[in-house]
Amino acid sequence: MHVSTDILTWVAVVLTVGIFSFLWKDNPFYKFCEHLFVGISLGYFISLTWYNAVYPDLFRPLFVQPLSEVSLGNKLLFIIPLLLGLCYFCRFIPRVSWLVRFPMAFVLGWGAGVTIPAVLQTSIIRQMQGTFLTPGIFARWDVFLWAIISFVGVVCSVLYFFFSREHKGALKVASETGIVFLMVGFGASFGYTVMARMSLLIGRFQFLLRDWLGLIQ
């Protein structure tokens, strides 16, 4: 056993144990660690936003770089995001708080516009391409079997999410088959993700037992 003498390791250990103490019950030690975590992360986030986004992408080209580096036309373009960003602060002034809706509308519109074609491409068209039954499935019996299972699974799962008809008769059979496929998928994903979580826990215990107590190599 070789207990660490590094002060930072001890700080990390105290905070780790503080967060773990929540497993027992809510307590002042956990509250302290929680508030410290939230405060530090928020401060870090503000700093990160300034140095990685606001300063290099807006403040520097608009106010610091000379006209020889950024043309007047481009500088004027930067005023648009500046004004949109400033609109967020209008909510602190009741008389003009409605201005906050402009950047919100812009961001929501942009979000939907960017996301919808991307989702269509990756989650629908590509998936359809992979689901089609092609002559290649006759190459081997196992390929054939999996292609059919996959095809039936996709069709039945999509039918489960059909909301315009009551799930009765054939639609009920199909949607119930679909939910079986979904649950099998969720079960697999559950096991996979739990293992990933376990590795996070193991990582934390390794820190306590190796870096702090020196009990393991």
Partner: peptide, 10 residues
């Protein structure tokens, strides 16, 4: 906060 696990803790 924007930090994932700090948010979860809070």
């Amino acid at each position: 906060t924007s930090e994932q696990f700090a948010y979860a803790a809070a």
